[in-house]
Amino acid sequence: MTNTNDSMKTGYAQKRKAINTIVYIILSVMVVIWIVPIIWLILQSFNTEMGVTTKFFPSSFTFDHYIALFTDEQYPYGKWILNTFMVAALSCVISTLFILMVSYALSRLRFKVRKTFLNLGLILGMFPGFMSMAATYNIMDIFGLKQQLFALVIVYSAGAGLGYQVAKGFFDTIPRSLDEAAKIDGATRNQIFWQIILPLSKPIIVYTALTTFTGPWADYIFVSYFMKDNESNWTVALGLYKMLDKEAISTHFTTFCAGAVLIAIPITILFIIMQRFYVEGVTGGAVKG
């Protein structure tokens, strides 16, 4: 419009530019802080030395540790990855199904003990998860599942129904008129669930699947208590932790790094692709990506 306005604009722009430069500097410093440990981990995984080093850059590089992961009989990393994947995938399927079933029932069906279930779910969720793992171990013994991978699947997914809150919150937002219309058309509640509600629930299904997959993928507590000395049934979390044992660290630290890098890659990619769903889940769909 007018010249004065233009000069004001340039003054404003300059100020904004200055602020932006500061923001860039802050962000860069932060990124360095955040990314350095990851870089260090990757660098160490190629270090020729075996033990913990205090230096940031290795003096020489090798690919041996990645090979050692799949050749070392004492630390059967390949087997662990397979175990971890199987446990995580199976738990993910069962847990997701359970969570959807329970949250649908609690959200959209009306029955007598619904309120009681809602409250009971809240109360049970407040017990520390691993408080009763000693007891759970004994129960697995009864079922002949002691130190079995399937025991882990059960542990991770049996209580999944308790995690109904987020998905229930989602189902609550779907208009009830949809159900009513379907009912008038003669659909049973079973049909409504599978054919109407679930197809609408892609974001929450992805979110649930994502969290129920990454949980078992990285769990240490239950594996460490359940698998004890059965190395061939360990998962990666426990196996990598054992590589840093007092007795092993000086020969296996770099192998640990290699293993950690390998395990981190798929899960990081998965998370980056799926982050939108994660955010939607946590914020109850308040974000429309």
């Binding site: 981990l41 990454t214 990285a218 979390a237 950690a260 395990i263 981190a264 990081t268």
Partner: peptide, 9 residues
């Protein structure tokens, strides 16, 4: 990326 890498690592 740092959030996605498993915590134990």
């Amino acid at each position: 990326v740092t959030a996605a890498v498993p915590q134990f690592v």
